[in-house]
Design a protein around this nucleic acid. Sequence first.
DNA 1: TATTATTTTTTACAAATGATAAAAACGACA
DNA 2: TGTCGTTTTTATCATTTGTAAAAAATAATA
Lengths: 187, 187
Amino acid sequence: MDIESIIDSISKLPEASRTKIIENTVPVTYPKGHILIHADTLETSVYFIKKGIVRAYVNHEGNDITFWFGTAGETIISMKSYVENKRGIESIELLEDCELYRLQTTKLQQLYLQDIHIANWGRKFAEQNLKTTEERLISSQFRTAKQRYRELLKNTPHLIQRVQLGHIASYLGITQVSLSRIRAEIK
Amino acid sequence: MDIESIIDSISKLPEASRTKIIENTVPVTYPKGHILIHADTLETSVYFIKKGIVRAYVNHEGNDITFWFGTAGETIISMKSYVENKRGIESIELLEDCELYRLQTTKLQQLYLQDIHIANWGRKFAEQNLKTTEERLISSQFRTAKQRYRELLKNTPHLIQRVQLGHIASYLGITQVSLSRIRAEIK
DNA sequence: TATTATTTTTTACAAATGATAAAAACGACA
DNA sequence: TGTCGTTTTTATCATTTGTAAAAAATAATA
């Protein structure tokens, strides 16, 4: 997915404003397995995914807990770095070879203060993610692991094909053993 | 909490911009038990809480699932109405007599397009909520109910005093019986 | 292809949580 | 204060999920 489409998919921008963002992006590629963002560091860039798939995870008592998958067209941020300019708690790992666009956060923040269209575009970005995240939170509050897995199969079937099940399990908040049981039962 | 402080607590605004928002707010009061926002309707206002406490909940198979508590200084929105101008999935119930400030969403949207400071203020509002919500999601993914209850006790002790335990239980994603067990065990 | 490493499934048992019903505690109010 | 309705706790049993270890399947590499 090219950078113009990614930016406009968040919210349609006037040509001039969109160009201001694009001028500041740099295409980068990294191989599968690369750790793009490290937990406990201040991340100074955001990334748009042109191609590939990534996961965000936190480490908890030696285990990785995956809480987000990003695919083509989506935006990678280190939440605390982006929102509060503090060290983030999550790491980002590339699950496939990826093509990304890098954009420096400081530059983006400048544009937010200079261009009202970009400010509203940034607002839309946060709002859309907020809605999605809240829906996931609510869903996790009353659906069983089996229901959540079914939901995932239905909404993002491509994910299960491309991502190993251990990551899916932790994304669902259950163990791999438990997911395996659910899969056996459903078939 | 007065309206000036509430607005500035999200992000400090220039006097003129803040005034533009405040001019469009109307103080309203409702009694405990009032349903401020109804699920499955398009909500045309947002509310700032001057005084009182509210809960946001969705209905699932006859049971209320509380997913958010709002107290003085916080902002009440119907997420889908606010972000997508569609009917919301949640209801808002006042758990105490409340004093609120009402602001029409259409007016706020106009201000977003007219005033870059307000646009960035709205961005900050969404970003802060996004960060908080994501943290809650991550926490729920690997903490047990007992740990989440302890966390709640520690972070918002006043909540447990003022809100009935059935609401707390559903907020934690467990049954009231299960919460009661946890409480008995902890003491 | 053969070998090795990684991922997924299976098994057995333990712990946590859910469902249901009843008892106890609490609060509102006549 | 006494009564009634609501909330919280307790008890019992069923179900789900976790833990640990091993087997099976799959993927990576020489």
